[in-house]
Amino acid sequence: SFAVKSFVNLAAKCNTAEYDFAIRETKTREVIEDVATTKSEVGILYLSSFNRTMITKLLRTNGLIFYPLIECETFVYLWKGHPLAQSPSICFEQLKDYPCLSFEQGDNSSFYFAEEILSTYDYSRTVKVNDRATMLNLMVGLCGYTLCSGIICEELNGTDYVAVPFDTQGTNGDSRMEIGYIVKQNTILSKMAQLYINEIHYYLAKYREQEGNHDSTNEIK
């Protein structure tokens, strides 16, 4: 949500009577393709110990550069009325009776492009969706959950959902993720694209500051 909030902040600062922007929330592979074909100037994605080799190779093949923004631990994102919502941390064993919600990626190598960390774990219940609104509805209706960075914008997401630290007990892989943005190599970004990146840096700096002051929370407004 920090990518959307940064976009909102940018648009709000545009002191013009008219503007024509586009922000696309799409599959990871399409993010890469959009920037590679200059349909988009900037793309946001993450690298992990599992997908780093595959994604890095794909970026290099398409002439793209990855710029790191922040490293995050994994959080469990769920509805505030979920039975586990008040837990200090949550491990996979506690989640086994609830469906894991993930975004549909749509090809045979989709686990490399999954937006959710630990995408190869053997989940007993899964539901794939193709939009965020449906995912939030299923968090309430099915007590589902997803795994995320924990950087939650309460102003946009509201107060009905919480992010609880994920306990890596029972997992074999590194659950840390490195979030960054990608751009086309040897391309000069437009003024608006650069301003958008600046907004992201500002937002994440604010997040780091608040995280340092309040270790138990991961929401910013």
Rank of each mutant, 00 (worst) to 15 (best):
K27I: 05
K80Y: 03
T61A: 11
I23S: 05
H82K: 02
T56N: 02
P88D: 09
Q94Y: 06
I90R: 02
D97M: 14
Y67D: 14
I90T: 02
N62G: 03
Y67I: 13
Y112A: 13
R60K: 12
T26S: 10
G63E: 11
L95G: 05
F50K: 05
L59H: 01
Y67H: 15
I90L: 05
L47Q: 05
T26P: 04
V31H: 09
C91I: 12
I90V: 11
A36R: 09
D20G: 14
F75K: 01
K96M: 08
G106I: 05
Q105Y: 01
E33C: 12
A85Y: 01
R24C: 09
L58H: 02
S89I: 07
E25Q: 07
Q94L: 11
K128N: 12
I90Y: 03
T56V: 00
Y98A: 06
T38D: 15
L47T: 02
R125Q: 15
N62H: 09
V76S: 00
E30R: 14
T61E: 14
D107N: 13
I65C: 07
S109C: 13
S89V: 08
F75G: 00
L58F: 00
S124E: 10
G43N: 00
E73M: 07
Y98K: 07
E41K: 01
Y67L: 12
F92G: 06
I23G: 04
R125A: 15
S109W: 11
Q94F: 06
S119Y: 04
E33Q: 15
P88A: 08
A22G: 11
S119K: 03
T28Q: 07
S87Q: 09
T120A: 10
F66C: 03
V76N: 03
F75A: 04
P99W: 10
S119H: 08
R29H: 11
G106F: 06
P88R: 07
L59I: 04
C100P: 00
V31Q: 09
Y46P: 04
C72M: 11
G63V: 09
Q105C: 02
S102L: 05
A85L: 02
E71F: 14
R24L: 13
Y112C: 14
Q105G: 02
L59G: 00
T28G: 06
W79V: 02
N51P: 01
A114Q: 14
E25R: 08
N108C: 15
